[in-house]
């Protein structure tokens, strides 16, 4: 027993040491660590990287890519940062995570609304977005939000798509039980496939990505006429940094950088004509 115990002790100790070493090594590699409100040399960017083509993973499943990612990298460069790192946060909680210093800025398809304006520091719009309705190819009776009555609609939770649907419910254009919300943006599409819902309300940029990936499956049934601008979202207190970013966004518009990034990801420039 005595000898047995000593061996176990050595075993457990070495196990713990190995684990802590691996932990340290991956701790360095992953994007985490506390940020000093943009004062450090690295710009930490919060993204919900399950939102193609705005922010998602490359074909290795590891590298973060997308429209917002390119914008963020350019922003970091022009702010004089040596590096830009991406922290992958679920959309649920992403705004709380910003305010508790998990990263410096959210560049993750943040649509501008009053609540976000009041709680955080938003820049001017950098891309125009709008809400659209996506249905299955076979669905023919949904051509506008007025035809959603009695239908089931899916959205990602906490998005302006959800706000859009809540407004429809208020206007009695959508039944109280007509809305299903999901943590990930893919999930309403999966439920659409499974036939549990009839339509998905989603940002146009994402809708286009999914439709082009599944040409024979989905239809873009309706496109909102009012555009819904998106902004970079800084912490409430970081107004100086926000003002700097506004200046940089202007410069990026002026020198054609925005146009270039937009054409890379959307094949067209969706960054012009912003109010």
């Amino acid at each position: 027993m005595l000898r047995l115990k000593k061996r176990n002790f050595i075993l457990v100790t070495s196990l713990v040491v190995i684990l802590i070493l691996t932990l340290c090594s991956c701790g360095n590699k992953t994007e985490s660590s506390d940020s000093g409100s943009g004062t450090s040399d690295v710009l930490l960017v919060g993204v919900d990287d399950s939102y193609p083509p705005m922010e998602f993973k490359d074909s290795d499943g590891k590298t973060t890519i997308g429209f917002d990612v390119d914008v963020a990298k350019e922003l970091g460069k022009r702010l004089g940062k040596s590096d830009v790192k991406f922290v992958s946060n679920d959309w649920t909680g992403i705004f709380s995570a910003l305010e508790i210093n998990k990263f410096d800025v959210i560049i993750s398809s943040v649509s501008i609304n009053d609540e976000r304006q009041s709680k955080h520091s938003l820049t001017k719009p950098y891309i125009a977005n709008k809400q659209v309705i996506v249905t299955k190819k076979s669905t023919t009776d949904i051509k506008s939000p007025d035809e959603l009555k009695g239908k089931k609609v899916g959205v990602q939770a906490g998005t302006t798509s959800e706000d859009f649907c809540r407004d429809l419910i208020k206007q009695s254009k959508l039944g109280d039980n007509g809305l299903a919300t999901y943590p990930l943006v893919t999930q309403p599409f999966m439920d659409l496939d499974a036939g549990r819902i009839d339509a998905v309300v989603v940002d146009i940029v994402v809708a286009k990505y999914y439709i082009s990936n599944n040409k024979d499956k989905y239809n873009l049934s309706w496109e909102s006429s009012s555009s819904e601008p998106m902004a970079l979202c800084f912490k409430k207190k970081d107004t100086d940094l926000r003002d700097k970013a506004n200046k940089i966004l202007d410069d990026m518009q002026a020198d054609g950088t925005m146009k270039k990034i937009s054409e890379k990801w959307f094949g067209e420039d969706v960054t012009k004509n912003l109010q």
Partner: peptide, 23 residues
């Protein structure tokens, strides 16, 4: 813990699934 931005197996799977729009 995928919910608090930890990149473990579940999170990686979610990310790949959204990229592929395929479960």
């Amino acid at each position: 813990v995928a919910m608090i931005a930890m990149t473990e197996l579940m999170k990686v799977t979610n990310q790949i699934s959204t990229r592929e729009s395929n479960a």
